[in-house]
Design a protein around this nucleic acid. Structure first.
Lengths: 234, 234
DNA sequence: CGCGATTTTGATAATGTTCAACAGTAGTGG
DNA sequence: CCACTACTGTTGAACATTATCAAAATCGCG
């Protein structure tokens, strides 16, 4: 092996800084278009010619695909900083729809293709998405309904449930409240379940004291680590 | 919208040619290492420091992830031309294992990072993989066992079952024989099913006259279009 | 308060899993 | 060449999980 992980890390750090800054420069420039969306507004449809790439600035959105008989699979859930609208074949492979009111930046494909620093940033984002899709495939292919919902909830607790999880702060109650940007139907379509199953799992988790529901979309996780142990991943 | 799909296509074509050629140049150079693998040999493990990127030259391979209790999800099946071993966090997120005897090219991450033309090629490959993962998420999240196996089989018929499928040649028997590079267990772990269910679906397809099995891993598809209609996608 | 939409709950059905036994296949060595 | 063995794949029966269908409860909002 040519160099160790430590050496990779140090060489990667300045690269990231460099591309982040080029990206920030681009977004400040007049070329980037800023779009405001209401909740549940489609940004583009599967099959539309792919002319722009987008970045979520505020709020959240999703990408989904439909089967001819109407079954839907939400393939990605997007938050601030996430990019989407990449393509290979000239058309979008998914439909993009806002979940909450949100602001997205639209970037002309042309601008990216001619600016290596922007390309680097884009590549980084695509790699992160591919990584996330691998995890999601495990969830869809091998996890039970309970594990899927647990994994889903932990996703909304920053820095937890992922590799290098910081764990609970010693001695403290490890309680966190998360705001879900999605309806039960959207959660179901993301997790490959039905709306009823999602609802039943939420109720089951409540009965077991793992969570409590302040509102339908406000979930208090009683103990993040306990829930994490239900996710199948740990 | 700034420009039409047609304009995107023509601008994309020369780009592809340019990166393909840089890629071919790199592979001919002494920097690319050529590795020979037997069937079922691991190339790297989930968690290993990610120092190189790979390309399949001959044969096929897979990427999989394991849950702590041993459940496995095969997240990608790779054939000639496919790249793998990308990372975001410095370590591989999957284990890579050959399915058949195969030859892979190993490319130092450093070489790619310093050569924009190689980066473009890599970005293209990652985008294609992301696209494939979206389709796979639909399969795992929303398709029945029968549809999953049908989709899987069609995957091995070049130019069919995908967007812009050429369809059967008029008047001809639309029969094709495919060689599966995977065992039933591997297919099951790829499709999010059990080995028994995969076996039962194969038998069911045989009884219905959709396929015939010359050997366990040689499947004759009686009529590609009929099978395609069973895949849920069309 | 009352209406429409979303969510929850219940009863039943279907799909796929699990566990167990059996069959086919390939490889080995007498 | 055939018997033996180990492995992979197939089939069957019982079971579990999740889906489906139907109804009740809750929420959001004018």
């Amino acid at each position: 092996m040519a160099y160790t992980q430590a050496r990779f890390d140090v060489s990667a750090a300045p690269l990231a800084t460099r591309t982040e800054s080029a990206w920030a420069d681009y977004l400040r420039s007049s070329k980037a278009r800023r779009l405001s969306l209401e909740a549940h507004e489609a940004l583009f449809f599967e099959g539309d010619p792919a002319e722009r790439v987008f970045e979520v600035a505020e709020g959240s959105a999703m990408l989904y695909k439909l089967l001819p008989d109407g079954r839907r699979q939400v393939v990605e859930v997007l938050g601030p900083g996430d990019m989407f609208g990449f393509d290979v074949v000239g058309v979008y492979d998914c439909t993009a729809e806002s979940l909450t009111p949100c602001i997205v930046h639209a970037i002309e494909r042309r601008d990216i293709e001619t600016a290596p620093a922007l390309q680097e940033h884009l590549t980084r984002c695509v790699l992160a998405k591919l990584h996330a899709m691998h995890d999601h495939a495990v969830l869809l292919g091998r996890k039970s309904a309970f594990e899927r919902v647990a994994s889903f909830l932990i996703r909304f607790v920053p820095q937890r449930g992922v590799l290098g999880c910081v764990g609970p702060t010693a001695g403290e109650e490890d309680t966190r409240t998360v705001e879900l940007p999605m309806t039960r139907q959207e959660i179901a379509d993301y997790l490959g379940l039905t709306i009823e199953t999602v609802s039943r799992v939420f109720s089951d988790m409540r009965r077991r004291g793992l969570i409590s529901l302040e509102k339908h979309d406000r979930v208090m996780i009683r103990d993040v680590c306990s829930l994490c142990r239900c996710s199948g991943t740990h």
